[in-house]
Simulated assay, not measured.
Amino acid sequence: MNIGFSIPDPALITPATIAEIEAMGVESIWVPEAYGFDCLTPLAWFGATSSRLRLGTSIVQMAARTPTATAMAAMTLDHLSGGRFALGLGASGPQVVEGWYGQPYERPLARTREYVDIVRAVIAREQPLRYAGEFYQHPLPGGTGLGKALKSIAHPLRPDLPVLLAAEGPKNVALAAEIADGWIAMLLGPRNEPFYRAALEEGFARRSARRPAAEFEVINPVPVVVDDDVEAAADPVREFLALYVGGMGAKGKNFHFDVMARMGYEDIAHKVQSLYLDGHKNEAAAAIPTAMVEEIALVGPPAKIRDDLRARQDTLTTTLVVQGDLRALRTVVECLA
């Protein structure tokens, strides 16, 4: 389950509801962040009120924290939860990175590679941290000259704590396959799988033998809306897509736009983006056809959702993450059962 960017309805986060979610057989709970609530604090809450749920970030914005701060938070939550934490990382886009976090965005793939290197080194705790990268240096050269190579005073519960990367572009997906333990695959549907399989294979060819490709995870967040009226069920997903395709990125630099364009919806994506950026958000959502919604979401009555789930059985996905309410979660669990 993914709880979304907002703190959920209080009824969702009671110990009784968390116990119900665990009893359903739900394996994990994932929390995102953008430029509002953070993703780590809610996971501490969910970890304290559950005993089995895996706790994943989907995602930690890398620009929000130094690599060492992220590694510290990951080790802390892993200890507190008894080894249930999964660290999902993402580069986000220039609007958020430069506009909200006030950090440079250039060369995000090279920056991500260094970030993951440092996080892994801190968690492995094999030696004091020394890193001479293009974007990150430990100890910092110059300054007072008193910087010292340090090793975490906290011992990791799991030196190989899983690190996953969110990615949408082919080069970033290939990077995830090369250096990470998994890929958080937003807007992934059966139609665009061949494109991503090729990107993954490119990355697996460069992957270290220490991390077998057979153990690689593909975490697929999927919006789910249950309603006997398919069009009504599609409406919230239209709003979601309008936000991401139209507003989560600048014109000409929107990775979500690019995904839908690769699926064959480029003309619609241009229309949605134009309407959204001109302030016509409702019209932007209305311009999205139900077929486009069904590429990346499960919408409609339970019987239809069950049939649509069958189409996802032989896909890249190893973990299906429900983006929706408790009814959506229960429906998916019942369909899979």
Rank of each mutant, 00 (worst) to 15 (best):
V173G: 05
Q103C: 11
G99N: 04
G145V: 03
G56N: 01
A44M: 14
V333H: 14
P162V: 12
Q323Y: 12
S152D: 15
A269D: 01
S81R: 14
V321T: 12
I7L: 12
P223Y: 10
P139Q: 11
P139T: 04
P223R: 14
A232W: 00
L243W: 08
F257R: 08
L150G: 03
F240G: 09
W183L: 15
G133K: 01
E201L: 11
Q323A: 15
Q313K: 10
L129P: 02
A19Y: 00
D160A: 11
R158T: 02
T318G: 02
I29F: 06
A303P: 14
W100I: 01
G47I: 10
G182N: 11
K171L: 14
E294A: 02
G324W: 07
M260S: 00
E134S: 09
A132Y: 03
E215Y: 06
R312C: 13
E178A: 06
S28F: 05
G93F: 15
A234P: 07
D38H: 11
A23E: 12
T331H: 03
S50F: 03
P108L: 05
G143L: 02
I268G: 02
R120Q: 10
T317H: 03
L146H: 04
E134W: 06
P104S: 04
A167I: 04
M24F: 00
F195M: 00
A86S: 13
A199S: 13
L129I: 08
F240V: 13
E33G: 08
S58G: 10
I13Y: 13
A234H: 04
R210N: 15
V173P: 04
R206A: 12
V218G: 06
R52Q: 10
T14K: 07
R84T: 03
I13C: 14
G203P: 12
A250S: 15
E266F: 01
V222H: 10
W45P: 13
A303Q: 02
V224I: 08
D314M: 06
E27R: 04
K281L: 07
T70K: 08
M248I: 11
L109V: 12
L12Q: 11
E126N: 05
V26N: 13
L161N: 05
V224Q: 11
Y136N: 02
K281S: 04
Q137G: 03
A285H: 01
P236L: 10
A328G: 09
D325G: 15
I7T: 02
A185G: 14
M62L: 01
L109T: 09
S208R: 01
G4A: 03
V226Q: 01
D307G: 15
L187V: 00
